[in-house]
């Protein structure tokens, strides 16, 4: 039935949005993930399908909000939900972002060789997030290896066919050096890295120690004509 709707609709996502409107969230999620994992679909369509799936997963009493949020966070690491989105969506996506570096640390590092990086054998696609002068750019390939060309610093992640990360090198907040620079430049860079690391650790420790925690508010608004 869903396949028939997909064929008849002007956009493959239209019937899925209808499912969301009808509060048939599980069906919407399954349809969205089916499009998102279709390697022949355009990147834009796959990403739109993922955000649709996330909206469905975080609507009503849907139980897969965190799971889909992790998938979206992994597949589209530079994407962030609009602050006006569903609060449960924003919170789940925040949790996915916060735990992302930890999850990546437990993954294999892939194989970095001269001018290219390769994921494990199950790799379906690779994303390179290149950092140049503070600006991040993405390069996605449907291969198990990616050419690094002149990329000096970046973050690499390999996905299987189900969009799950299976290898990662570095993270968004801590891109790794992909091409070695001249030896003469290593010492000041190492010194700067050390100083920056100590500074970041100090700031992180301060923020953690000074965190006052959070509470809730039961608000009753009365309309008195």
């Amino acid at each position: 039935m869903i396949a028939l709707l997909l064929v008849l609709a002007s956009s493959p996502l239209d019937p899925l949005w209808s499912l969301v409107d009808e509060e048939r969230y599980q069906a919407a999620i399954e349809g969205a993930l089916r499009i998102a994992t279709d390697a022949n679909a355009t990147i834009e369509l796959r990403q739109n399908a993922l955000t649709l799936g996330l909206t469905a997963a975080c609507s009503g009493n849907a139980e897969r909000c965190d799971q889909v949020a992790r998938t979206v966070s992994d597949w589209m690491p530079l994407w962030r939900p609009d602050s006006r989105a569903l609060p449960s969506l924003v919170q789940a996506f925040g949790r996915a972002r916060v735990t992302r570096a930890e999850r990546y640390n437990s993954l294999p590092k892939g194989q970095l060789s001269q001018g290219q990086w390769c994921g494990p054998s199950a790799t379906s696609s690779i994303l390179l997030v290149e950092t140049v002068r503070g600006v991040q750019a993405q390069d996605r390939v449907k291969e198990s290896c990616i050419q690094l060309n002149k990329t000096e610093q970046g973050f690499l992640i390999a996905y299987d066919a189900q969009l799950q990360p299976i290898a990662a090198l570095g993270s968004l907040s801590a891109p790794v050096t992909l091409l070695k620079q001249k030896q003469v430049n290593q010492r000041p860079l190492s010194l700067a890295l050390t100083i920056a690391g100590i500074t970041l650790a100090g700031v992180a420790a301060y923020l953690l120690l000074s965190d006052p925690g959070t509470g809730n508010l039961e608000l009753t608004v009365e309309n008195r004509p």
Binding site: Q91, P212, T214, G215, N216, L217, T220, V221, N223
Partner: peptide, 17 residues
């Protein structure tokens, strides 16, 4: 608003202060 002209809302994860 309900019959008592009220609308309850719950706000979560507010930084303590």
């Amino acid at each position: 608003f309900d019959a008592r002209n009220e609308h309850p809302m719950t706000l979560n994860a507010i930084p303590a202060g």
